[in-house]
Simulated scan of single mutants.
Amino acid sequence: MSRQQGDDGGHASARERILLAAERLFAESGFQGTPTSRIAEAAEVPKGLVHYYFRRKSDLLTALVERLPDERVDPTRVVVRGDIAESLHRLVTELDRRLSASRMLSHLLWREADTHNAVRDALRSRYDVLVGQVKSVILAAAGAGTLALTDVESAAALVALAVSYRHSVARHSDAPDEIRAELTFIASALTGRSGTVRVAPARAP
């Protein structure tokens, strides 16, 4: 059977089974402790089919990174104008919701990042995206020119680190109230008050 035929037929589902088996076994026994023969057995495919789709075992990790949910959130969906803390909390809640079905995968990839450059680079890229969108949410909630940009950048990095840590140890949940205090503290540090900023009414042209 040709590769094209395989992709259109049974091999497409076989590739999915291979990835699911690799995710489970890597989480249970670690990357180094899981031979491809065991992955093939768990996926119920010939060992050669594993190498057909993934030339090196590390390619399985790269493919698993791509299975993480998209972390880009439209700021307009979460921003409460004038309330930085609540806006950040809504952002974190949405990120947690998206990752709730991938807790084991998230923990696995963060654990393997120290020894696999492709995984580390991919997770770093996700972190950079997270910093950018936290910054956008803070600025949208506070209003243009309300806060010093250097303070916003520092706060965005802190929030991104906190969220990344939660996801790396798979402690995220459907109700991320445990991080609310940290978000409120960061918002208070930015505004010098309780996380709520007063938004000036728009001036008539």
Rank of each mutant, 00 (worst) to 15 (best):
R126L: 06
L95R: 04
D59H: 11
V169M: 10
H89V: 01
A187D: 01
A140E: 14
M104C: 11
K57Q: 13
E71V: 10
W110K: 05
A162C: 10
A204Y: 06
S13Q: 08
L20A: 07
L161G: 08
L149E: 12
D74S: 07
A189E: 13
R97K: 13
L49A: 15
A85S: 14
R24V: 11
H11I: 03
Y52E: 11
A43Y: 00
R67T: 14
V78C: 09
D59W: 07
V78S: 05
Y53E: 08
G9H: 10
P176E: 03
T196Q: 09
A85K: 04
S164V: 00
V134D: 04
I138F: 05
R171W: 14
E71A: 14
S29F: 12
P69V: 01
R124P: 03
T76Y: 06
V163W: 00
D121C: 01
R126A: 06
F54M: 05
E23W: 00
G143S: 10
E86G: 01
R103K: 14
L109S: 04
V152W: 11
S125G: 08
L147Q: 05
A175F: 07
D7E: 10
E41H: 15
I179P: 02
F31S: 00
M104T: 15
R67A: 09
A42P: 06
T34S: 02
R56M: 02
S173I: 03
S168R: 05
P46Y: 06
R3G: 10
A43T: 03
P176V: 09
L91F: 03
V50G: 13
R98F: 01
S106L: 12
A142D: 02
V65L: 15
A22V: 00
S58R: 11
R3W: 13
I179Q: 04
